[in-house]
Amino acid sequence: MYKTLSPVLMTLGDANGIGPELICRLLAAKAYPDLRLALIGPEAPLVHHCRHFSITPFWTPLDPANPSALADRAPGIYLLTPPRLAGLPATPGKETPAGGLAAGESLEYAVPILAKHPDWGLVTGPLSKAALNEAGFAFPGHTEFLAERSGVGREGVCMHLCGPVLRVSLVTTHPPLSRVPALVTYDRVARCLELTWDYVKRLGVADKPIAVCGLNPHAGEGGLLGREDEDVVRPAVMAAVAKGMGAVGPLPADTVFHRAVGGEFSAILAMYHDQGLPPLKMFHFNETVNVTLGLPFVRTSVGHGTAFGLVGSGRADTGSLEAALDLAMRLV
């Protein structure tokens, strides 16, 4: 048995999206001498991008019927192709159900491995939500897929994105904006605060509190602009503080990110997707990492989408994928 880092699995994501290209370019350019990394997905897109970018193929195929054999392998890069994806053709840059099948089937294959080896990590490549659903996987994204398949459930996890400075958790993930107020409940805010506090402690940055955004403009102005912040958010924050967590809020979202960049907070808990992520991605666009808090295993991902229009151009930045892999290696 090799006494190195715990193995990490990496799904290609949508086989026709930018994921396979980024994986080829990153792993050809950067060495990970202590890591056992198993790519999961069809081989054809990897072969295509290696030819396109004049990269020597760098992976060793493994028997998909025995993925646990990775534990006994020397550090290196390996490939596990789920049986349903064997021979799947590559159509880079085209959004098709086949690409969604590759993404969904790779996740279906990875979850039982991680159930058996919860000390292993998972890095996921970007997927198309439309293609995923067209392929028969009725989930709005990775977070919900992994929460359900791991048995934790959607209410048990928290979507978190981060860069070198900002760290942002989300109370809600991908619902329509009209549904957000009803989904911001005491229990949901409390759960996300708990998971985020555990995460910043693990990172060693819990010397500063988590800033909790208000749902409404100006955090509701004491109820004048909406009661949710006083009736739901504030009691959850107060209960977290009473349990020993560092948290402040609700705070106006229009200033809290400026304060966080200045070093005042360990993380931010935002109420919804487009409250928390535009400031983060403006500041960390090419180095954003998505982390699912609350799963029984480490899961990180790129913070961007499939970028079908950039596939093959070589212009897509590998920084987010590199950061996602580095963080997974740090956490396993």
Score class of each variant (00 low, 15 high):
Gly223Cys: 08
Leu80Lys: 12
Leu70Cys: 05
Pro175Arg: 02
Pro217Leu: 08
Leu127Glu: 02
Pro67Val: 08
Arg167Asn: 11
Leu170Asp: 00
Pro217Cys: 06
Pro278Glu: 10
Val256Ile: 13
Phe58Ser: 12
Ile55Asp: 02
Tyr32Ser: 05
Glu230Gly: 13
Thr173Leu: 11
Leu85Asp: 03
Pro75Phe: 12
Ala31Asp: 15
Tyr186Ser: 10
Leu161Thr: 07
Lys208Gly: 00
Gly305Thr: 11
Val289Leu: 09
Ile23Phe: 10
Thr318Tyr: 08
Gly214Val: 08
Glu230Ser: 14
Leu146Ala: 04
Leu39Arg: 03
Ala206Phe: 08
Leu193Met: 02
Gly163Asn: 00
Ile268Ser: 00
His304Trp: 13
Asp326Val: 11
Met245His: 14
Leu277Gln: 11
Asp198His: 14
His117Trp: 14
Gly305Lys: 09
Leu26Trp: 06
Ala131Asp: 06
Gly314Asp: 04
Val291Phe: 01
Ala65Tyr: 14
Glu134Gly: 14
Phe137Tyr: 14
Leu183Asp: 03
Val152Met: 04
Gly156Val: 00
Leu46Ile: 06
Ala236Leu: 02
Pro97Arg: 01
Leu310Gln: 12
Ala90Val: 05
Ser54Thr: 14
Leu35Cys: 11
Phe257Gln: 06
Thr185Cys: 02
Trp197Ser: 07
Thr81Asn: 07
Lys129Phe: 09
Asp63Gln: 09
Leu35Ile: 11
Leu39Ser: 02
Val111Asp: 04
Arg154Asn: 15
Asp187Asn: 13
Ser150Gly: 02
Gly151Ser: 11
Arg179Glu: 13
Phe145Leu: 08
Leu122Cys: 07
Gly226Pro: 10
Asp207Trp: 06
Lys201Phe: 12
Glu228Pro: 10
